[in-house]
Design a protein around this nucleic acid. Sequence first.
DNA 1: TATGAATGAGGGTTCATTCAT
DNA 2: CATGAATGAACCCTCATTCAT
Lengths: 221, 221, 221, 221
Amino acid sequence: MSKSATARTRDPERTREKLLEAAMIEFATHGLTGAKVERIARRAGVNKRLVYHYFKGKEQLYGDVLERTYQQIHRREDAINLDARAPEQALADLIDRLFERIIALPHANAVIADENLHQARHIKTAPWVKDMHARLIAQIETMLNAGSATGVFRPDIDPVRFFISVLGLCLTYVTNRYTMSVVFSRDLFSPEEREGWKRHVLDLCLNGLRPVSAEAPRQNA
Amino acid sequence: MSKSATARTRDPERTREKLLEAAMIEFATHGLTGAKVERIARRAGVNKRLVYHYFKGKEQLYGDVLERTYQQIHRREDAINLDARAPEQALADLIDRLFERIIALPHANAVIADENLHQARHIKTAPWVKDMHARLIAQIETMLNAGSATGVFRPDIDPVRFFISVLGLCLTYVTNRYTMSVVFSRDLFSPEEREGWKRHVLDLCLNGLRPVSAEAPRQNA
Amino acid sequence: MSKSATARTRDPERTREKLLEAAMIEFATHGLTGAKVERIARRAGVNKRLVYHYFKGKEQLYGDVLERTYQQIHRREDAINLDARAPEQALADLIDRLFERIIALPHANAVIADENLHQARHIKTAPWVKDMHARLIAQIETMLNAGSATGVFRPDIDPVRFFISVLGLCLTYVTNRYTMSVVFSRDLFSPEEREGWKRHVLDLCLNGLRPVSAEAPRQNA
Amino acid sequence: MSKSATARTRDPERTREKLLEAAMIEFATHGLTGAKVERIARRAGVNKRLVYHYFKGKEQLYGDVLERTYQQIHRREDAINLDARAPEQALADLIDRLFERIIALPHANAVIADENLHQARHIKTAPWVKDMHARLIAQIETMLNAGSATGVFRPDIDPVRFFISVLGLCLTYVTNRYTMSVVFSRDLFSPEEREGWKRHVLDLCLNGLRPVSAEAPRQNA
DNA sequence: TATGAATGAGGGTTCATTCAT
DNA sequence: CATGAATGAACCCTCATTCAT
């Protein structure tokens, strides 16, 4: 409406967005060092020079991509209304959702894996990181407490550790899919394997929370 | 012994070894693309040219480093004598050992993470990959079957999936330590956290194997 | 004229041209292998990087130089209007012109000599080679036929062979001037020698075409 | 006889010879700059270090190869006994022989072509060059004079120019065979073409020597 | 004599980035 | 806003040559 008729190629917002999107793919596939500015520009369909118009440089663009990446993984809608459900069911939902999202965002995982190569240098001072997961962790804590109260969960489960566990089971599955498929001579990403994995993760995590009953002692001295 | 005291130079075997060692660190810290041949040579204390004397080039050196990496992770001594022990105890030992080894070899993990960036291109056709884990998987299967027979484990646990689970919980902890420490504002690698993590992984994995008893139903509609 | 006086920089067309020119000299003097990209750039007065801006690389630049080289040798104006002249005179003109041109383009000869080292690899698939000499050969054929009709030339002279002969006599003189001058202890490129050579080539070639008359038998058994 | 039984690999003379031979091929195929010392050693079947044992270095080896090259082209047996023959026949024999030899030694031609790239720098001061062709030139001169005396040749033919002419016609045919075959879309080195060429060269050169008779004027004003 | 190890110099090429339009 | 031209730094790799055995 407020745009002129000829403004087809001149859409700064969109150009920036396209660059970010292209950069995310590039960084995910090649890492910060291996990423080429020109490939990013080409994939975004714009001139290489524009990268420097919208971003300060390759490194800053990398930082912006990281922010976008975390936003994608940790969307607001993650909030689960657990009031109406049993803790176990609520946690199962959370795991399911997390698993699906991580599978759906392989680029995001790759970028974060790469950022770890750089010792989290780029997100260390970013303002948006602080308490990014606070709400989710709080939710998990509530669930764990609820389950602990009714005796279905062991007490004293650290919500952060639990979250990282779920994350780890999902991330490794995605991040290491290539080497593992080779090493185990088994296509771990076929639809059946995928479902099997989700089932397995759910079983492991939820079962793993149960209190240790007397008749099934874990260890005996 | 048979070598003279001055034999610091002209020790091809050792030179090659030093290069491999240096390359592993370099590739782990910078990835294949970010790694610099000169840094590798310098760290090995030899002339840059020697890299090409002993290896065909950067990429082939990367492949050799990968082989070495997998060898380090999966040493022969992994074999656990489980005959004398209860399955649970044997599995606990295996998890413990794997955890410690992975913690001890952060470079190895980083290299493998990087190789996944390259879609496992370098190990895909390597002859040493085949059946590398076969023996370990077979052992796990035996343990799982034994536990299943005595009723302490659920039946039908896929040994590969179980192994990947343990691996995933350990790997993520190591690989993503930087970003996670930032995101959760918590130094996940302090000695206490480390012990807490191992404990957590053991609990989760072993508990997760238990059969679902009547009094602790996982889900109710 | 339309360009501002300060337009010395930012003239892509000219830059490319300067690079080609410099490359031709470099390739002629050092061959493909011996040629240094940096020298080419320096001689062209531009940054080394620009070579890769305008050409794909050293080898492709070599190919482009070859095209340019052949164009220089075989310009359009080569066309000789022979209608008005006797065949002998027309041929003499052609030889004269070819000789002068080849003398004037020692670089071109050197480049082609080098390309032969590479077994014509770079021009083999070039589109511009096809029928490059077709017109000239056709002209020569016409001349030879005309002379043959009037009895001044032997019949059945292959125009391609004749052309190669003239070419060979000129090329060798230019290409091998250095070794020959040494071997024969005689500066073959002094102005007098030069004229003597042209005269000699003309005599040899035109005389060589004459029919073998009865009173001057070439061979008798 | 005087050699010990184990001296199979220790034959300095032969090793040197093999190196020279290999070097000639290498220099012919790649030129001085493009030639690799290692390839030479490998082709000779000896260690690279030996190149420096027998020769001072690559460049000096190149010089030695040049000497060998010229020796091959200009062997002593070139001497033609022309006493018994008519000058024309003797010259025809010489051309024939030269043609065959040059065809048979494509490497030699390539090396000399390359030396011209270097402006004959390596042979300029070589002692063996002096008067290398003197005897041959003298012979040709004798033939030309004899023919001139009997009226079958034009007088005042410069023997050096004549020799260079023959050489040029042969050399160009060999040296430029690759580009010419491409440019003229014609395999100039098939057996038939080869014979045709020799015939053509003989015709051209011998006819070209004939005196200009009245009935076949070369030019008319 | 013969050999593998080791080296320093340099060349082609790539890349992130800035200039000029 | 958008673009092609231009640059300097750096990296992988090659090569002729020397060292040590």
